[in-house]
Design a protein around this nucleic acid. Structure first.
Length: 261
DNA sequence: AGAAAGCCTCGGCCGC
DNA sequence: TGCGGCCGAGGCTTTC
């Protein structure tokens, strides 16, 4: 699904509706799963004026003169403004538009519509989403905040890959970005977070930022250097070593047997 | 057929 | 033995 880079592009799209007022909104039962009922969305959004489009990790936020509205995109969700523009950037899932895959949206008083298009129905809408369970945003992570990510108070802590994916620790890193960061840092994703030495922490800090900047410039989370080796039997694009794979932190993880220790 | 870029819940295990 | 927190497994959902 969209990771932080894709959601950031949705946020930029959503900036175009700043200043508009919501005439009405709708959401199906799946998209409204975090609300008391689907009607809670249409009731809450009606008449709100959008003041800003912001974001925390993978959570898109529409700030209004009332409650803040939250949009989550699951694994295949895309934000659309009116037409189907934006779908071609989708790496996973069908690269096409179907009316029936529109799961939620708002109609603005100027006639435009902001829509959530999601074949797999894992996208969610929220009213006044709780932000206290999300860590600092990955795109603006400070050195001090990064140090918190790699600091474990008791025991060895979880595998570093699982730690990077923990949205309450740092918000926005998904499966592909996490693998790319560790690939660039030369770190085995199974390494317990608390066991990373000072050199590895420094390398990970550099790789963390480099990965986000570079892939943002390239245009997506799926454009990392390690992607060419990301399949069973694949080889490392950097040194030709066999790529290994295993489920870590609940996601299929790929890493190079040669340069990631 | 099986795995997929997210997230939520549940249950086992560990430590106090 | 009891409890809370941590962490991994599994489920959700549909598609290609």
């Amino acid at each position: 699904m969209p990771e932080i880079l894709e959601v950031e592009s949705y946020r930029r799209l959503a900036e175009r509706v700043v200043g508009a007022t919501i005439a009405h909104g709708w959401a199906d039962a799946y998209a409204a799963k975090k609300l008391s009922a689907p009607s809670a969305w249409s009731r809450a959004v009606k008449g709100l004026t959008i003041h800003a489009a912001s974001r925390r990790g993978k959570l898109l936020l529409l700030e209004t003169d009332g409650p803040t509205l939250g949009l989550r995109f699951g694994m295949t969700g895309v934000l659309l403004l009116d037409a189907s523009a934006g779908l071609e950037g989708l790496f996973y899932g069908p690269h096409r538009f179907k009316e029936e895959w529109l799961r939620a949206g708002v109609a603005l008083d100027d006639g435009r519509r902001l829509l959530v298009h999601d074949p797999r129905r894992l996208a969610r809408v929220e009213v006044a989403p709780a932000l206290d369970q999300l860590g600092p945003d990955a795109l603006t992570l400070t050195k001090a905040q990064f140090n918190d990510v790699v600091t474990i108070t008791r025991g060895d802590g979880p595998a570093i890959k699982a730690r990077l994916l923990d949205q309450s620790v740092v918000a926005g890193v998904g499966n592909l970005l996490g693998d790319e960061m560790l690939f660039r840092a030369g770190i085995d994703p199974r390494t317990p977070t608390g066991r990373l030495d000072q050199v590895q922490r420094q390398q990970l800090y550099r790789a963390f930022n480099q990965t986000l900047r570079t892939l943002q410039r390239r245009g997506g989370s799926h454009l990392g250097d390690h992607m060419d080796g990301r399949f069973p039997g694949g080889h490392c694009p950097r040194d030709g070593g066999a790529m290994l794979s295993e489920t870590i932190g609940g996601r299929t993880t790929y890493w190079c047997s040669q340069h990631q220790h």
